[in-house]
Design a protein around this nucleic acid. Structure first.
Lengths: 172, 172
DNA sequence: TATTGTTATACTCTATAACTATA
DNA sequence: TATAGTTATAGAGTATAACAATA
């Protein structure tokens, strides 16, 4: 579908989240215990946040299989679509990607024909970016994949819970 | 404090989270816009989760400055403390760390004198682990740092909100 | 002098494969 | 044969420093 180098789709799904039983007393019988106690870690927001984020990133990567695009690529395309003509450095700042790492990413997307870069008229040091027709089409496809991925990965949360989660995350 | 190689404390705090104004209409005036539109990304739980997790991880690393320990080290120590004699492989499975990556981590912690490894009596292929007195003391110090870090990083959330957040994250 | 973008580079984190020793 | 642990290595992800062009 694209000419970006395809990601090696991890076959064996690692990232084995272990959910502890919530019971009051932990059963530590004579035979080998099936689960480990992890109360200290489980009480930490940072720990749960990282585990949950890893879970979603793994499913996200699977949902993008075949496109040759990773999360950062799609993020860049989405920012450009909503901010036509945006300069490369602004994208990096918005996404938390260092300038030095933006350069090869943008070169990849340009080489794949998804975006065009032109010298900024007001500041000729800067590069103004916009999507190509192909880039718009690919992004539309990716957005659909991503929304399906979120529905699948968050199926245990109600719509109300998802909104609460987003609101709380925004306060961090 | 320890003989683990110290992490190069990142001086310039990167990870610049950009929070968008929530207003209904976005002001796109003639002069340069100060912020970019990122509505598509901001609506995604996976995106917000990763940004929030990165924010906490950065502050976590700062809170551990001087100990020579990273998050995964403390996680391992905490699991061993709550599960004395636990086998190395079990720790890795509980934390989502591959066997191949557990080996050097455990060797570091053992070399630092924080844990002891002995062949498992029931299965001599396996290694049984327990904390040393030093390991217990270091872990106690780390736990205090971590709880202070969480209080600091989550000060914008009420206790009720933190519990709600943990509950929702556990459902992912 | 400061900033945009580029290149080169290094370090961490994670993933794979091959090996040993036990089971 | 299957598993626990080890080793080596390769691939992303992320960070720094130096440079050219422009402001």
């Amino acid at each position: 579908m694209l000419r970006l180098k395809e990601r090696k789709d991890a076959p064996g799904g690692r990232m084995s989240i272990t959910t502890l039983a919530k019971g009051p007393a932990f059963e530590l019988a004579d035979d080998r215990p099936a689960e480990l106690r992890t109360e200290f870690l489980e009480q930490l927001v940072g720990y749960r946040l990282r585990r949950a984020s890893n879970t979603l990133m793994t499913d996200f990567a699977a949902s993008m299989s075949g496109t040759g695009l990773r999360a950062v690529h799609v993020s860049i395309l989405a920012v450009i679509e909503d901010n036509p003509g945006v300069r490369q450095g602004e994208i990096g700042r918005a996404l938390g990607v260092a300038r030095a790492n933006m350069a090869p990413l943008m070169a990849e997307l340009e080489a794949a024909g998804l975006l065009e870069r032109t010298p900024d008229e007001a500041d000729r040091r800067a590069v103004s970016t916009c999507l190509t027709r192909s880039g718009e089409a690919i992004l539309k496809n990716c957005k659909a994949r991503i929304l399906a991925h979120e529905r699948r990965a968050l199926e245990r949360l109600t719509q109300n819970e998802r909104e609460t989660l987003l609101r709380l995350l925004n306060k961090i």
